[in-house]
Amino acid sequence: MDFLTLLQVLDTSVRLATPLLLACLAGLYSERSGVVDIGLEGKMLAAAFFSAAVAFYSGNAWVGLLAGVGASVALAIVHGLASITFRGNQLISGVAINFLAAGMTVLVAQSWFRQGGRTPPLQGDARFNPIELPFAIGPSDAAAADRPLSQLIAEAGPLQQFYSELISGHSSLVYLALLTVPFTWWLLFRTRFGLRLRAVGENPAAVDTAGVSVVWLRYAAVLLCGVLCGVAGAYLSSALQAGFVKDMTAGRGFIALAALIFAKWRPVYALGACLLFGLFQALELRPDIIENVIGLKVQVQLLGALPYILTVVILAGFVGKAIPPKASAQPYIKER
């Protein structure tokens, strides 16, 4: 395998890792506050549809993003009501939200567009188009030289190839997702809000005793989770692909959940886990590459299942134990 092929695989990995990363960080906020969220999938799916639909009508991907975030936050509020206000079972609420999104998106899509549960393809500004970083070789250079882009990149030096192929040419949401990692770390580990949010996931009674509202903190975490899932969904339908199709999240919310456990609920590790799982997904699309590299045919099904298998191994504690926040999934009942 040559250097350029490697770069192409890594480039695809980054693209595929982005929705995982956003959803994983979303789950991180929620779970760190003690609210387990297996409804990441549903929130992403709802956001994917509403962002694509509104982007289609408005012709503006950013307006679409807002709508997607709105839809995701609405579901997050339902989850908050069920798990914080009414102290219900958070897992069951998550399951309900996944089904609600799976059904509603198709129902509304059929009612609005009559195309069998999809949106019309998005074009132009209705999508998040790739950003060309300065000094990178991109489509504009190819147009100026009147030669195919792949040829220009193939002729460039390795550093320029690395920069143009891997670093440059992603949509703005990819860079935003990457910036969310240090931001999340800073917010959780360097601010008072973050300290309290982590504390409420470990020992809500102590936070309550200190005079800080458990309910408010958990709602804040659940809403942050909703916003990030919204961005993840919008990225899926209006950056990674051009439009919404039925069930387009395809288990990504659960892979993100797996990545969250794999990362042991820490933001920087989450980046690593999501890039790894993104790489698996990229290799699933190019099984020939693994065959060339290790000379062995690897079943694509195995690659698809690898994130889940790894997570079970980690959960089983055979390779370093993953211990969730202590108050996970427990509703807080104030003593009277």
Partner: peptide
């Protein structure tokens, strides 16, 4: 998919929002 929505609402109201 209407059934999926109904199923979700049943799970939501009988399971998660039981206390409501």
């Amino acid at each position: 998919e209407l059934i999926v929505v109904i199923q979700a609402l049943v799970i939501l109201f009988t399971g998660a929002l039981d206390n409501m």
